[in-house]
Amino acid sequence: MFRSRSKDGQASTTQVDDAEPQPRDPQAPKGRPTPKRSEAQNQRRSLAKAPASRRDAAKRTREARRTAMARQREALASGDERYLPARDKGPVRRFTRDFVDAKWSVAEFFLPIAVVILALSLVPSLQVKNISLLLWLGVIVMIVLDSISTSVRLKKALRERFPDESRKGAVAYALMRTLQMRRMRLPKPQVARGELP
C-alpha cells in the first residue's frame, strides 16, 4: 500500500495488486519445445503416483537417469543443443567446435604417429631408435606450434563474433578437441573440412 499526498493535503491510498498474474501472450514463444504426447503422458503418470518404497524410488531414478543419458548420447551424435552436456552448450562452444572441425590439425594424428614411432623404437638398430626420437621431437614441436596458431586465430575469431558473451574456457575446449581424431569427436562434427563456421 502506497500513500501519496494530493494538492489539498489529504492522503490518498493506492493499492498494488500482485496476486493477479498477467496473462501470457498466446503468440509469444514459451522458451522450451513442446513435449511429445507420449512423453507428456508418461511424465504425468509418473508424477501422479508416488513411489511405494525406496526400491521403487531408486528404480524410477535409474530409469530417469537412463533416459537422460540416452537423450544425451543422441544429442552428442546429432548436435542437438537442447540435450548436450553443459560443457558443450551455447553458441560460443558451437562456434569453437566448428572452427576446430573445419581445419586439419597435427594433434589429431598424434595417436597414429605415436604408434608408428613406438614401433620404430622397438627395432634393435641404434639408427632407427635415433630417428624415432627425432620424430618424437618433431611431432611435439609441430603440435605446440599448431596449438599456438589455433589459439591465436580462435581468440581473434571469438572476439569478433561474440564480443559480449563469456568466452571462458573456449580455447582449452578447442585444444582438447584437436587432440581427438575427427571421427571420434563428440559432439560429432557438423561442418566439412575447409567449410567456414
Rank of each mutant, 00 (worst) to 15 (best):
R5H: 02
S6D: 12
A11F: 11
S12V: 14
T13N: 03
D18H: 04
E20R: 15
Q27R: 13
K30A: 00
G31Q: 12
G31N: 08
P33V: 07
N42R: 13
N42M: 02
A48H: 05
A50L: 13
P51L: 11
P51D: 15
A52Q: 15
A52C: 06
S53P: 04
S53V: 03
S53N: 05
R55N: 04
T61C: 01
A68S: 06
R71Q: 09
R71L: 02
R73Q: 02
E74M: 12
E74R: 15
A75I: 04
S78R: 00
A86L: 11
D88A: 06
D88I: 05
D88S: 07
P91D: 13
T96M: 03
R97D: 14
D101K: 03
A102L: 02
A102Q: 12
K103H: 11
K103G: 13
W104E: 15
V106R: 06
F110L: 05
L111R: 12
I113V: 14
A114D: 15
A114G: 06
V115R: 05
L118V: 07
L118E: 14
L122N: 07
L126K: 12
V128G: 00
V128F: 07
S132Q: 07
L135C: 07
W136G: 01
G138L: 11
M142T: 11
I143P: 03
V144M: 08
L145K: 10
T150S: 05
R153W: 00
K156S: 15
L158G: 10
R159M: 11
E160A: 15
D164I: 04
A172L: 12
A174N: 03
L175K: 00
R177M: 13
R182C: 01
R182I: 07
R182K: 13
R183H: 13
M184D: 14
R185N: 08
R185E: 01
P187T: 12
P187K: 12
K188A: 15
A192W: 05
L196F: 05
